[in-house]
């Protein structure tokens, strides 16, 4: 016995060292990564650098950009609409997370069950995923039309029906439409994660006499912790960059009541032809998104991940 173990161990180390010490294994060079990296740098990273440069210029989109120093930034700090737009972005994002997270966890755990009726209903639940953000916004705009939409037919529920005409209800509509569109996606994430929870845990809990509700709170929820982080981060990044919904449903209105940062940037650049000011807003957006993403990468350990089964 005592003699066989070292021999096995030695054999293993030798086979590994031939693999590592390299005569046999030829690794791909950096050249394999060059085309993709170059393409990405050219069409994503470089524009990002350029947005910083443009934020110090005045440009109407037609003539050449002119360097104006920190004028755009000075104006931005004193711009009420900008400060309001950041606040609105935060409100819509937080409301989105608060509404979508419990919904998608409940639906995801429910859909993870193997029952036949659940499979059939889940198939219907996922249909909103097939629509683009544009299509969803156009659909709800039509459905909520005060004259030809549902509110006109259900006055007992909607009052005068002009939901997009007041700030509170307009924000409500944006959050609702966002939830309608994205909850199925997060449900899908939670469904997959729930199915990956080892059944042994539930069997052990059942032996201990834990019912469905206790199993949910003491096994399912703690096991979904990492998934919750991933899903919430996606919600935050998605929420901060909400654009299509605002453009199509409210155009930032009434007035500037729903002008969130991403929409304000578009408006400044492409509607008021103040591309320099728009760039400054864009840079603020990038900074916020980057900080969040750095936190994500740290918290979730994406960069250290070695296998797909980790971190689920």
């Amino acid at each position: 016995m005592t003699t066989t173990i070292p021999r096995v161990a030695r054999r293993r180390t030798t086979s590994r060292s031939t693999g590592r010490s390299g005569a046999a294994v030829i690794r791909p060079s950096f050249a394999w990564a060059v085309p993709a990296t170059l393409f990405f740098v050219l069409f994503a990273v470089l524009p990002l650098v350029l947005v910083a440069v443009l934020s110090f210029t005045s440009w109407d989109g037609i003539s050449s950009p002119e360097f104006v120093g920190v004028d755009n930034w000075k104006a931005l700090i004193h711009d009420h609409t900008m400060i309001q737009s950041l606040w609105l972005s935060v409100v819509i994002t937080v409301l989105g997370v608060v509404v979508q997270t419990p919904l998608s966890i409940l639906l995801g755990v429910w859909a993870a069950g193997k029952q036949r009726n659940r499979a059939v209903l889940s198939a219907v639940y996922f249909v909103p995923l097939l629509l683009s953000a544009t299509a969803v916004s156009v659909l709800w705009r039509a459905l909520l039309d005060p004259n030809f939409g549902v509110p006109a037919q259900a006055k007992w529920l909607f009052g005068d029906g002009n939901l997009l005409g007041m700030q509170k209800s307009a924000i409500g509509v944006l959050v609702f439409v966002g939830a309608w569109q994205y909850t199925p996606f997060h449900t899908l994430i939670y469904q997959g994660a729930t199915r990956a929870i080892p059944q042994v845990l539930y069997q052990a809990a059942a032996i201990d006499g834990a019912g469905t509700v206790r199993q949910f709170f003491h096994i399912t929820l703690p096991q979904l912790r990492n998934t919750m982080i991933t899903s919430m981060i996606l919600m935050v990044v998605g929420g901060l960059t909400t654009f299509d919904t605002v453009l199509i449903l409210t155009q930032g209105g009434p007035g500037t009541d729903t002008t969130i940062s991403a929409y304000y940037m578009y408006q400044r650049a492409f509607k008021s032809f103040d591309f320099g000011g728009g760039s400054a807003i864009a840079l603020v957006l990038v900074l916020v998104a980057t900080i969040i993403s750095l936190i994500v990468v740290r918290v979730s350990g994406y960069d250290k991940m070695r296998s797909t089964s980790e971190g689920l």
Binding site: P47, L48, A282, L283, A289
Partner: peptide, 10 residues
């Protein structure tokens, strides 16, 4: 983490 919105101007 780069939102497409952030780069539409450049």
């Amino acid at each position: 983490a780069i939102p497409a919105q952030a780069v539409i101007v450049p």
